[in-house]
Computed example of a mutant assay.
Amino acid sequence: MLSGKTPYRMGNFSHSAGGTKHGGTMRGLITTLVGIFFGFFLGLSFPMLSSTKFNLSSSLLPIPDLSKYDNQQTRPLTQIAPVSGCNSSSTEAPKVNDASKTLVRSNPRGAERLPPGIIAAESDFYLRRLWGDPNEDLTFRQRYLVTFTVGYNQRKNIDTVVKKFSENFTILLFHYDGRTTEWDEYEWSKQAIHVSVPKQTKWWYAKRFLHPDIVAPYEYIFIWDEDLGVEHFDAEEYLKLVRKYGLEISQPGLEPDRKLNWLMTKRINGSEVHKEVEEPPGRCRDPHLPPCAAFVEIMAPVFSREAWRCVWHLLQNDLVHGWGFDLALRKCVEPAHEKIGVVDAQWVVHQSFPSLGNQGESQNGVAPWQGVRDRCGKEWAMFNSRLTNAEVAQQRANGG
């Protein structure tokens, strides 16, 4: 900090060193002009100096040799060509904090700051190796997915069912009893995907592990119970009929000798596929609506990839049993009475093994299975209420 006397001393020094007033003025003018020219040329040279300095400091950083990995699939990120929203031909690296260059509104939610060319929005259940070239991991890609919600006590039946599905299917087991490693007694189980969470239903698993972006590689998704008899079923033949009749949501016909809840799911002998039935008078307010048409049960449904993307959103996160859910599936395809149907030529038997119901807990003297069934009824009522309220709100929003 300068003292109060400093300006006075500086003034005296300048005056004595200047000689005459005229000579001091000329020297001051010359000094000013020299300073201006020096500053001008220094400013011209600064960008070149800055660029040289940047390149020098960058060259001091350790950079791995990526040339041996370079191909169309694996390139350093700095070599990825700009895509939509980034059409500039400039090779200048984008500024990290420049929001105008990094925010891409068309990107998936949460990925707006990423360059579109690096986004991996979808995934799959394909197993990967821990070694070797990633591009050589998959010599074969399954086209379909089948899931079963299982307990170890039903392993023999599941073993029989799995053998009805070809190598074109990825097998995914949801374990509600926590037992997984014991399944390795079956060779196919060693290549299956196992998810274990105790005492949950298949729709609980589906909402959490079958997001549309996870199952996107699969053309069709089977979400089946563990107690189905498959003596008269072949998965590949089933899908041929699904394609032939343009079914987006389907199920195999059920053996008519067993007690059935719905006539729509009953197998019609001599038929390949049916899409509607006649229920007792008064049960269907419209022949094109459930349960007379546009309806399959939640026991053994099969969804196309496109239909499942909608159905997943229809699934409620907290209503895990799915009762009533099947009556609303028609909202995910159009026209529903043509794209939802039952495949009669490939049919199954509902064996009704006591399984998940016994995973409940007894309360107030009520048997575990009865407590589970009571909740199923409550969930059905809740789902119907939510759907009705949502439709009313939508109509009001549209001015209806």
Rank of each mutant, 00 (worst) to 15 (best):
W131M: 01
W131D: 02
G132V: 07
G132S: 07
G132F: 12
D133C: 11
D133H: 00
D133S: 12
D133M: 08
D133E: 11
P134I: 01
P134F: 14
N135Q: 05
N135L: 06
N135E: 04
N135I: 09
N135R: 05
E136N: 09
E136I: 09
E136L: 12
E136A: 07
D137M: 08
D137R: 04
D137K: 04
D137A: 12
D137W: 08
L138C: 07
L138I: 13
L138T: 06
L138F: 10
L138P: 12
T139M: 10
T139A: 10
T139V: 14
T139F: 07
T139Y: 15
F140W: 10
F140M: 11
F140Q: 09
F140I: 15
F140K: 12
R141W: 05
R141D: 02
Q142E: 07
Q142C: 10
Q142F: 06
Q142K: 06
R143A: 11
R143S: 11
R143I: 09
Y144H: 13
Y144Q: 06
Y144S: 09
Y144L: 09
Y144P: 04
Y144G: 00
L145F: 10
L145C: 09
L145D: 04
V146D: 00
V146E: 00
V146S: 02
V146R: 00
V146K: 00
T147C: 14
T147S: 12
T147Q: 13
F148G: 00
F148V: 00
F148T: 00
T149I: 12
T149E: 07
T149R: 08
T149C: 15
V150D: 02
G151L: 15
Y152G: 02
Y152M: 13
Y152N: 13
Y152C: 13
N153R: 01
N153A: 14
N153I: 03
N153H: 14
Q154W: 03
R155G: 10
R155M: 02
R155F: 08
R155Y: 01
R155A: 07
K156P: 08
K156A: 08
K156S: 08
K156R: 14
N157A: 12
N157V: 10
N157M: 02
N157L: 11
I158F: 04
D159K: 06
D159R: 12
D159N: 11
D159G: 08
T160M: 08
T160C: 02
T160R: 07
T160D: 14
T160Y: 09
V161Q: 10
V161N: 01
V162E: 07
V162M: 03
V162C: 10
V162K: 02
K163R: 13
K163L: 07
K163E: 05
K164T: 04
K164N: 05
K164Q: 13
